[in-house]
Design a protein around this nucleic acid. Sequence first.
DNA 1: TCCTAAAATACAAACGTTTCAATTATTGCT
DNA 2: AGCAATAATTGAAACGTTTGTATTTTAGGA
Lengths: 342, 342
Amino acid sequence: MARATIKTIAQKAELSVGTVSRALKDCSSVKDKTKQRVRQIAEEIGYVRNLDGLRLRTGRTYSVAVVMTTPTTGSHEWEGVEYTNILNGIMGSLRGTMYRAAIYPVDDFDSSFQEIRNIVEQRLADGIIISGTRPDDARISYMLEKDFPFVTYGMSEHFTPYSYVDANSQEMSQKATTRLIQLGHTNIVSINPPDELMYSKQRQRGYIRALQDAGIEVQAEFIATGPLTPEFGKATVKALYNNDKKPTAYICANEASALGVLSAFYELGIKFGKDAIVNATDDINVSAYFTPPITTYFLPIEETSKALGEFIIRRIEGEPAQDLQRMVMPQLIERQDDRLKP
Amino acid sequence: MARATIKTIAQKAELSVGTVSRALKDCSSVKDKTKQRVRQIAEEIGYVRNLDGLRLRTGRTYSVAVVMTTPTTGSHEWEGVEYTNILNGIMGSLRGTMYRAAIYPVDDFDSSFQEIRNIVEQRLADGIIISGTRPDDARISYMLEKDFPFVTYGMSEHFTPYSYVDANSQEMSQKATTRLIQLGHTNIVSINPPDELMYSKQRQRGYIRALQDAGIEVQAEFIATGPLTPEFGKATVKALYNNDKKPTAYICANEASALGVLSAFYELGIKFGKDAIVNATDDINVSAYFTPPITTYFLPIEETSKALGEFIIRRIEGEPAQDLQRMVMPQLIERQDDRLKP
DNA sequence: TCCTAAAATACAAACGTTTCAATTATTGCT
DNA sequence: AGCAATAATTGAAACGTTTGTATTTTAGGA
């Protein structure tokens, strides 16, 4: 049997398609009794709106583009970010609405920009979610200029208000550093994402501020930036192994790089808790099972990703961007006391 | 400026829309010279086909549904499967074709079935990719019956040929077990996914066969099944800690559960390499950074996921299912010698 | 009862595409 | 030249919606 359309309902209800259309969308110009009858029939024959017809007519796409930078294919390195969780969160908040998510995996900034241009010009989506933001992010400027609805995961330094969801990286980084200083550490290494990313900058700022507040001199070589893989974490430890000032603590931006740090400890014979310790931020509860478990700052990834979906819809529906901003504060999970013991 | 449509081209080329449409799709009934002219113009004004019109007219959706069972939301447990990689692979092979992937995250078998029914009945996609297959998988029966194109990640026990991509779990499990037996282990624990999944069955079969071949009695309590999280791996070790026969080796179905096993070792004071060792299958190169690194079987996840995308398209285009089957054999990566040393 | 205003519905066009049937242009042959 | 056969193109309808405008129905006075 063919799929039920508005026309099917119209025939059954002896109404015109126009009225049925209006009835279904609760238009005030149609009588309550009629609405009821139409809904009744629609229910009975299991009618669902055909999106293609709708799109064609309205010019809207009812889809949200999620432009995500995904790990370089072929690298085989775990980047620790749980895209699944993010996608789940976004799709979760889209459920029940008319919107669908369309994923656009890209592998660097330029191709993400290109993809965004494409989406905007071809009207491939009604709104865009992006991540991997930069302090001066050309994609944001572009979408602002085109007045195209978007939400970012992470912030930038634009003046014009825009909608974002982010973890408070700077404060978290500062707190984490201060905590370690208070526990007696002075040679603290900060492992960060690539330099051009906004949250790398924020993390570095927080780190530096904490050191300055404590009157500790900042060592340039203690600020590492690179892809947040185990490989990079490991390489960082090795690179500093023969440094005159020996690091006694590492604060990693995610669990993947922290795993690499532990791996380096193991390989180099650095004793955890005696020679050095590791912390991580952006915990997604993997490090609870590390050997040993490490202290982290938990990222409520469900909350942030749900907000992404919610915000983009509200943005599309016209809510002002400045009302759609969320900053979450990750929570400390102390799995070690993180003092050095003899 | 409004978006360029077929009509725009028709006007510029002084042709009817019908001819333009045919010209663009390389129909034999239109003159070569005309085709060229049309293409030229299309190129110039940056025409791209409007999918909604196409869909509405043809009734095809040009989208592939990816119905994936995702980790239970709220569980906060790492399941180790890199959905990102799978998605990337699928989307990679869709790139350049007219097809788009639409993700349907579901959280259990029933809802995945429901979602599939929906997709088939409402013709929400032209083809479906599913995972988490069972020996007697009702979803597969359903799609076979409806003659709806699909590809599975993992196998079932259906007679009718269908398109699948899978790792050779049984052989891998058997080989892994045999290898450990040859290295002197007799009390080997097999950590598997939930019992109802096909690949759990395959793994158990391989494990049992290896033991039988070696004349070793199978201990029921050495076959564990459950969610492949670190938590489960850890719990399994703990549950067997006071067993009369002490396990000396664990073969985990993925790296996440292996991480849990190592975590239990650490907590219980079980010395790796002296008291027991751990192996894992479905390696996605995280365990190289474990403490210590462990022996695994590497899963070429790019290859499998690329095949998924490729197969579903070819299936949609009408290729017979029996030509679209791929079984990959994971490769041993020896990161330990895995003998017990005093 | 009739008229007017308001309420409810019907009609028809449009979105961009494909495709069937009909028409026109071209070619080859006598 | 003329004719048939074929090649190339056109016209129009259709897919399922929404929506502006026209039309009909209803209700409320006088």
